[in-house]
Simulated scan of single mutants.
Amino acid sequence: MRGLAGRRIILTGGASGIGRATALRLADEGCIVAVLDINGDGAQETARLAAGKAGTIAAHTADISDQDAVTAAVDAFEATHGPVEGMVNVAGWDLPIPFLETDRAFWDKVIRINLYGVLVMHHVVLRRMAERGFGRVVNVSSDAGRVGSSGESVYSACKGGIIAFTKTMAREMARNGIILNTLCPGPTETPLFDAFRAASPTGGKIAEALARAIPLRRLGKPEDYPGIIAFLLSDDAAYMTGQTISVSGGLTMS
């Protein structure tokens, strides 16, 4: 895609699932990618899988809700590879629990990972992009943030917050040459969804029901999303900002 080769990208949640698939696709496109993930071993494995590709992947172990850790990781990446030009926020976590059965500790964990982590990443990276007058950002939300999802109340609130935050940042940063868009996946076969399925006695039946409800009759795969993410980071999408795009096999159509 136009403009992607050599572009320096920060990506969170790249140790597995959608994040890993996206990091590897970006390496195929010739990008220089920094994977930030609390799972350092998984991030290192993603970097190893990029051997022989046109681009490279560097692994950084970091808790994205820790601003000092994120700043150190971005500093280290830029010292070696140069200024960050793109960012993809994929990292997320949840378990299926009805809201009235949750507690404050659960809320705090879900919000820290799914919302505060995104805020921290933007606070660290957007400042640098604004000073340089260029940036491309893709935030991975969820269709749960657009239409809700039973058993995922706090997660849905965070994902809806990401959609609104991205639109606001798209307005604030447009004059600085920064464009931001949101991708909303549907249910996807990832380690997070495996944990979601295992956390409930009816998890398997829920997964089957979701697949039946999707017009394309299957759950998503991690490889279903990197193409649109690469497009949104490329110069082919230079006139798109503040948009929310669902990739869910037709599960949501509005």
Rank of each mutant, 00 (worst) to 15 (best):
T12Y: 01
G13C: 10
G14D: 07
G14M: 03
G14E: 02
A15W: 05
A15G: 10
R20P: 02
R20D: 07
R20Q: 15
A21W: 10
T22Q: 08
L24E: 02
A27D: 04
D28N: 12
D28M: 11
V33N: 10
D37F: 06
G40I: 09
G40R: 08
D41W: 01
G42M: 08
G42T: 03
A43N: 11
Q44D: 13
Q44V: 12
R48Y: 01
R48A: 12
L49V: 00
G52M: 13
A54I: 02
G55M: 09
T56A: 15
T56V: 13
H60G: 03
T61R: 15
D63P: 02
S65H: 13
D66Y: 10
D68K: 10
A73L: 10
E78M: 12
E78C: 11
G82I: 04
V84Q: 05
V84W: 03
V84L: 04
G86N: 07
M87R: 03
M87L: 15
G92L: 04
W93D: 14
D94M: 12
L95A: 12
P96N: 09
L100I: 15
L100R: 14
E101P: 00
F106R: 09
W107V: 01
V110P: 00
V110C: 00
I113G: 03
N114H: 07
V118H: 06
L119G: 00
H122S: 13
H123N: 14
V125G: 03
L126Q: 05
R127T: 15
R127N: 12
A130M: 09
E131A: 15
F134V: 07
V137T: 06
N139M: 09
S142V: 10
A144L: 09
V147A: 14
G148S: 07
E152W: 06
S153G: 15
V154S: 06
S156E: 00
C158F: 06
G160H: 00
G161Y: 06
I163F: 02
M169Q: 15
R175K: 15
N181R: 01
N181W: 04
T182I: 03
C184W: 01
P187D: 07
T188P: 10
E189P: 00
E189T: 10
E189G: 00
L192N: 09
L192G: 07
A195R: 15
F196K: 05
F196Q: 05
R197C: 03
A198L: 11
G203W: 03
I206T: 14
I206E: 10
A207V: 14
E208M: 13
L210M: 14
A211L: 07
A211V: 10
L219T: 08
G220D: 13
P222C: 11
Y225S: 01
G227C: 03
I228Y: 14
A230Y: 09
A230T: 06
F231T: 11
D235L: 01
D235S: 09
D235W: 02
A238Y: 02
T241V: 13
T241L: 06
G242T: 11
I245L: 14
G249Q: 08
G249K: 12
G250T: 10
T252L: 14
M253D: 02
S254K: 01
